[in-house]
Nucleic acid binder design. Structure first.
Lengths: 233, 233
DNA sequence: CGGGCATTTGATTTAGCTCAATCCCCGTGG
DNA sequence: CCACGGGGATTGAGCTAAATCAAATGCCCG
């Protein structure tokens, strides 16, 4: 748990690195937050924690998860740069989920004690928070309809396709690095490790993707991938 | 599609009937909305509609659903009195889901052309909208983790338990009327009609619930019901 | 080179789906 | 008052996709 320098040190020349400043409307709010970084695997919020916080992710990837009574981890969402974590309100009761860094993460943390005032002072921040929360809701609803009916193949294909969309101009346009292990994919997609692996090799055998090794995926046939993802969803 | 009288006719003496006024902070915003009622089965928003709206449900129950490529309806959420429907922003693109009345519904509709102004004038409304959206997000995440891992029995038991919690002081405290048909329950829980039916009779045979007929459920053993709902979730 | 971990592959089991038949509740009309 | 019909709900009999159990393989890193 390392606290970094204050976020108001994110000057204009650093905009590219400081997600929260990417949207000009959010610039004033950055001054009210504290800069913080997390190592991969570090926990920002623990389920049951009474203390809540609200933060905006600038760099890196986080997962929102919880352990079900059977002891199985369920991942209910991923958080990408620009996304907000936690809640801005004090009345929400204890946290219901863990929030853990999947990679090195930097974020701009807003203490809950002052955030309501910050929102009152900067309506654009509240607007942005609402807008992003609504977008998030749409995302989760899409996951929901996928989990309700889609086959294992469609879940895996859909995850790869969505991950590819999230990483635009990389070096190799058709090679992506999955941010999750097979086990984490299984926890996110409501499958088992074995089933995820089997569907990956199925896609490989069909010539839709290539698996160069590690967590890398080469998308050889984007159309076929999209079609597989839509199969029953 | 019947437009009723304006919502600002909901005077204080009618508070009990007018959900949007239940929260005092929302009273001023009611004046900016239009009262509208829907018959059971009527569609408020159709997926693909370019026109969006934002409304607050005062009475009745709605479902948010969409038809997947396989032609199967998936219900991604239910909306109860006090919940907001739609989105307040114009930039969101076409609607992604149908929103349909499951019972007679009355709501207070805010035209999207004026809602941003309304929110600017009444910060409490925006606060409320954000707060409810966050709560909704939590709800959907709970559904998500249920759909990811829970058994058919747990899904059905969980739905009955949650429905029971939503209807507090009814006449018979232990008898509830399910708002959904078996088919709709199946669409909501990601199961088939037959499986829902089988789990219901399983709960009945185990003495956990009674099925007096129609959509009624008598909860005979609330603890056992809660336990069945938590089984693997 | 070897140990530990993630991933893949294989064999078997099972929960829930599909297909099919029957039942039950209720409104309608003779 | 009772036969008729129709839609939802229940029950039954296989079938299948994914889980589970088990083993082998590959890979990273000391």
């Amino acid at each position: 748990m390392v606290f970094g320098k204050s976020c108001n040190q994110c000057s204009v020349r650093e905009t590219a690195l400081c997600g929260v400043l990417a949207d000009a409307a959010l610039a004033p709010m950055a001054a009210h937050g504290t800069q913080r970084s997390l190592a991969r695997g570090e926990t920002l919020i623990r389920a049951g924690d009474p203390a809540r916080l609200c933060a905006n992710i600038q760099r890196g990837l986080m997962k929102i998860s919880h352990i079900n009574p059977a002891g199985h981890e369920v991942i209910v969402g991923l958080l990408w740069p620009g996304d907000f974590v936690g809640t801005p309100f004090l009345d929400g009761g204890p946290a219901t989920h863990d929030v853990v860094a999947l990679s090195a993460v930097s974020l701009c943390v807003f203490p809950q004690t002052t955030i309501e005032r910050t929102m009152a002072d900067h309506p654009a921040m509240e607007r942005q928070l609402l807008s992003r929360t609504l977008a998030e809701l749409g995302q989760v609803r899409r996951s929901l309809s996928r989990l309700a009916r889609a086959t294992a193949l469609a879940r895996v294909a859909g995850f790869i396709a969505e991950t590819a969309q999230r990483r635009p101009a990389a070096a190799e346009p058709h090679v992506i690095e999955l941010p999750l292990s097979r086990g984490e994919m299984a926890d996110l997609l409501g499958l088992t490790i074995e089933t995820v692996s089997r569907q990956m090799t199925r896609l490989k055998t069909a010539g839709v993707i290539g698996l160069p090794g590690g967590r890398q995926v080469m998308i050889q046939d984007p159309d076929a991938l999209a079609e597989a993802a839509d199969e029953l969803m």
